[in-house]
Amino acid sequence: MASLMSDTAAHSDALGYSFSKSIPNPTSHSSGPRQHSFYPYTDNGGSTLGITGSTFAILAGDTRSTSGYNINTRHAPKVFRIGADDPSSRIVLSVVGFAADGNALKERLDTIVKMYRYQHGKAMSVKACAQRLSTILYSKRFFPYYVHAILGGMDEDGKGALYSYDPVGSYEREQCRAAGAAASLIMPFLDNQVNYKNQHVPGSGEGHALQQRQVTDLSQDTVQGLVRDAFTSAVERHIEVGDGLQMMIITKEGVQEIFEPLKRD
């Protein structure tokens, strides 16, 4: 890429465009002091996803951690229980992106949820926790936590809850969400298999008259199957995803954690 840039810079001079000056490109300046400026982020790859049903929520992520083409480790969980010292806690957070920020965010939210429990004598609701997570992320609006977070839990009506976030705190409650390296591979699959997008009732008409297939309530086993399929497929097509699958299944009974192998290539 750099060499491509400097080539065009040479051409553009002839054409009368200010490339060499307007594109700051250290490799094209051979003279003068070289600045290797510090970049505070990196991408550790991996993918996460969350799906809710009426009585449960599942958060999952692969366990690979990468640096460029290197695998740092095959076992680096991305899905964390929040406020887990209280057995009544039903909150789970997944973070994908820059792992150091992800860890810092996890620890911060965990501390806040624990402090809430100590100070108010009751567990924080997922709804409150979701809003709080948003404010944490936004508090670093101009030096963001470089992560896509998904928060899962059980809401006050006993239904599975799922909230997804952008790095600066914009959030939304959703049925399902994929995040991270293979989000663009998994999300369309989820749209089709969870919300039946592009599925129609056969023979219901032509063109706009075609009827959308009615969305149904999915069972826990079905959803677990979808998660597994989503990841085994993502592993095939994305180099940063693989090694292991971590699933957190949140129900009113508690939070269950499952690890399964994924392809390690």
Binding site: N72, T73, F98
Partner: peptide, 12 residues
């Protein structure tokens, strides 16, 4: 375990 200048950590 490993740690680097960005605060990234992992263990293997």
């Amino acid at each position: 375990s490993q740690a680097d200048l960005l605060g990234t950590t992992f263990s293997a």
